[in-house]
Simulated assay, not measured.
Amino acid sequence: MSSSATTYTFLGPEGTFTEAALMQVPGAADAIRIPATNVNSALEKVRQGEADAAMVPIENSVEGGVTATLDAIATGSELRIIREALVPISFVLVARPGVKISDIRRVSTHGHAWAQCRLWVEDNIPQAEYIPGSSTAAAAVGLLEDGAHYDAAICAPLVAQEQPGLHVLAENIGDNPGAVTRFVLVSRPDVLPERTGADKTTVVVPLPEDRPGALMEILDQFATRGVNLSRIESRPTGQYLGHYFFSIDADGHVADARVADALAGLHRISPATRFLGSYGRADEQVPVVAPHTSDAAFASAHAWVEGILSGTARAAQTA
């Protein structure tokens, strides 16, 4: 990077929920912030050294994993998740002044936003056709352009406040008022965030072969070591039908003995396993660790085995 200032990129344009997540990062308000048109573009800026880190959505409490992010981070040169942020989600319906709800025939927004407002749309504008947008903010700003090919947009309230040419037709149109989206800050592999005691580890595990018990063998690496999984999703690799990888969030840090041992087991089963990072949980929830899976228990067990091997070696030398 030519500048000494930290540079972040995010799924833009300005005013997206992703930018709100980025603003939770200490120092982000004073950093250089570059909007990206899509997740792939944001991550590529990091890979190419054009940005120090990218904030992208990875999971929604209503729709589950954000597939564009899951796929983009699982392939290409390796990246690391160094932080996560949670943002409560609410939506408004906006249009140009003079447009009424009864006039709406086409609505644009991001796919996840459309899915989260589906019931409201069916009840209030059932005739509306969905026009996919790269982001909620981009859809809203697009309304102000000459020749806009849709009548309204679904976006965050902040976008409507910052764009004087937009008129809010309806507020709080989300089907789930408690909806939350989880975002991750992604950088190039570098210093591993320190263990906080309330951490999360993300890995990508390709299924070595499609056979009975293959997934169970992967899950057993966590279960037998007392590691809880907070998310597991399958995604197609794109190589051929039936070939998948699993994107997994596990409670704990790679510096925890139980997590390190589980990752070692995964690597034995699937050598192409990709470590995506260990980082502090945004909710600061501390996992419950059984005594037999604590660091002390692992250290004691390893010392016991080492004692057996040392004793055997000494016996062989004196024989």
Rank of each mutant, 00 (worst) to 15 (best):
V180K: 13
T224C: 00
E129K: 06
T6N: 04
H267E: 10
A5N: 10
P287K: 07
E129M: 05
A315S: 04
D103K: 00
I173W: 02
A160R: 10
H167K: 12
R274S: 09
D146C: 04
E233C: 01
Y150T: 14
D71Y: 06
L266C: 06
S61Y: 03
T224V: 01
D210N: 02
V56Q: 13
N60C: 14
T18N: 09
L192G: 05
P57V: 03
R182K: 14
S294Q: 12
S102T: 12
T136N: 13
T7H: 02
V25P: 09
L229I: 05
A54P: 15
W304K: 11
D103A: 05
V305A: 06
N176G: 07
T69S: 15
F222T: 01
S41K: 09
V141M: 08
L158C: 09
A95G: 13
V254H: 03
L266Y: 01
I154A: 08
G65M: 05
V259A: 02
D251R: 10
V305T: 07
V46P: 15
S270M: 07
L93W: 04
Q116Y: 01
Q239D: 12
D123H: 15
E233F: 00
F246V: 03
A53K: 14
F183Y: 09
D295Y: 00
A72S: 15
V46M: 14
H149I: 03
C155P: 13
A21R: 07
A113H: 15
L144Q: 13
V254M: 03
F275I: 05
S270W: 02
N38H: 09
R80Q: 12
D261S: 01
Q285Y: 04
G133T: 10
I89T: 14
V92I: 09
S4W: 04
I101C: 02
G197Y: 00
T109I: 03
R231Y: 07
G98P: 11
C117W: 05
V204N: 04
H267T: 14
A255N: 13
L119V: 12
D123V: 06
N176T: 13
L119H: 15
A264R: 07
T9C: 09
G165Q: 12
A115C: 08
D256M: 02
G311F: 04
D210A: 03
G15N: 10
P57W: 06
S310H: 11
G111L: 06
C117V: 02
I101F: 06
A303Q: 09
M55H: 02
S4Y: 03
V191E: 09
P164Q: 09
V121N: 11
Q221I: 00
A139C: 07
Q239T: 07
T109E: 08
N38S: 10
A264H: 08
F91M: 05
P177M: 11
T181D: 10
E284V: 05
Q221S: 03
A282I: 02
T136W: 02
I73T: 12
L219P: 06
S3F: 06
H302Q: 07
E44C: 07
R47E: 15
I82Y: 05
G142M: 03
P177N: 12
A115Y: 04
S230L: 01
I73A: 11
H167S: 14
D190T: 08
V66H: 15
P157M: 02
S4I: 03
